[in-house]
Design a protein around this nucleic acid. Structure first.
Length: 320
DNA sequence: GTATGAGGCCGCCATA
DNA sequence: CATATGGCGGCCTCAT
């Protein structure tokens, strides 16, 4: 029996916020291709709502699906909507509080956080929302510890995400928590997004560094990202982690959903890209600094991933 | 284009 | 008994 997710669409709902959970949760299947989640979109009255995308949404459900849900997710609405000014129907507030009391996982995307806050459930808790509405949010809900600089906040049973694309990061994070990194990576690949952006980083960071978790694989990942020009073959990494190569490979995949060599290659490419965009270093020096040896390797790897040579890439994307 | 070799991934299994 | 470990070997990809 799949985990039931009720997605709540309010007046002025943003279509993207409905699409993301439908794509990521709704299409996810397990080992025997059984669905892992069921996603049901509802409105407070069960009646149609006007979306923020210029069309009308006719939902299949009303608030009754919230009562049955394991996870309740509030989608964001446009900045002019009632909900985004902290006003939501009282029967919705009651249902949200009842769901939380029952132990359902509560989630919000973008300005959906306003609706959760309006129930009082976020008082004293950490949360985030779209940075553009941070000031309004603070004024309306001073009791909530708002952190507008992260992609999403995982506060245990309540998870909130920042604007638009951060919804993808949050949903992938939840899949990772529920079913492990491998399935989350598979879901990310299917959506053609990077699997790895973590929640605790600034909303504008381009090449995020992984969070500082002490010990084990996470610490090693952090170390690697600062030593990409070192020799990072399987044996060296395993030795650094004081594990046999076999166990190291296993643990690494458990944590990241990727194999060591693949992960390292991705990091190196990201660094090369950053150096080409932001520095005037000679190509050969760029290649050296990201551990790709000489410019020959960088060149072929680059062409395969980006369809351009490093110098073409720099010409097209160099930032002032 | 083919041949060869090295490194890496991971299922399998014996073992701790 | 359940779980984690790590060695082995087949197969893959990539470089020369």
């Amino acid at each position: 029996v799949p985990h039931r997710i009720a997605v709540i669409a309010l007046e002025g709902v943003m279509p993207f916020d409905l699409g993301v959970p439908a794509q990521i949760f709704g299409l996810l299947t397990g080992a025997e291709s059984e669905p892992l989640y069921s996603v049901e979109v509802c409105t407070p009255s069960g009646a149609a709502v006007r979306t923020g995308g210029g069309f009308t949404l006719h939902p299949d459900h009303g608030l009754d699906v919230v009562r049955m849900a394991d996870t309740v997710l509030v989608a964001g609405s446009s900045g002019e909507s009632e909900a985004t000014h902290g006003r939501i129907p009282s029967e919705l507030a009651d249902e949200l509080r009842a769901a939380a009391a029952r132990g359902a996982r509560m989630m919000s995307i973008c300005t959906g956080t306003f609706a959760l806050a309006a129930t009082g459930l976020l008082d004293g808790r950490r949360a985030t929302t779209h940075w553009w509405y941070a000031e309004r949010f603070r004024a309306l809900f001073p009791a909530v510890r708002l952190d507008p600089d992260v992609l999403f906040v995982d506060d245990g049973d309540i998870l909130t995400s920042a604007g638009v694309a951060a919804a993808i990061d949050l949903c992938l994070h939840v899949v990772r928590t529920d079913h492990g990194a491998a399935l989350a990576s598979a879901a990310a690949r299917r959506c053609v997004v990077a699997p790895a952006r973590q929640g605790g980083q600034a909303q504008f960071v381009e090449r995020p560094v992984l969070p500082d978790v002490a010990g084990g694989i996470p610490a090693l990942l952090h170390w690697i990202s600062g030593h990409l020009d070192d020799r990072l073959d399987l044996d060296s990494l395993a030795a650094r982690a004081t594990m046999s190569p076999r166990s190291f490979t296993r643990h690494f995949r458990e944590h990241t959903g990727e194999s060591p060599a693949t992960w390292v290659a991705t990091q190196r490419l990201a660094l090369a890209r950053e150096l080409l965009e932001t520095s005037g270093l000679p190509i050969d020096e760029v290649a050296r600094r990201c551990g790709l040896g000489g410019q020959a390797r960088l060149r072929s790897v680059f062409r395969k991933s980006f369809g351009r040579s490093p110098s073409e890439y720099r010409r097209d994307f160099r930032v002032a």
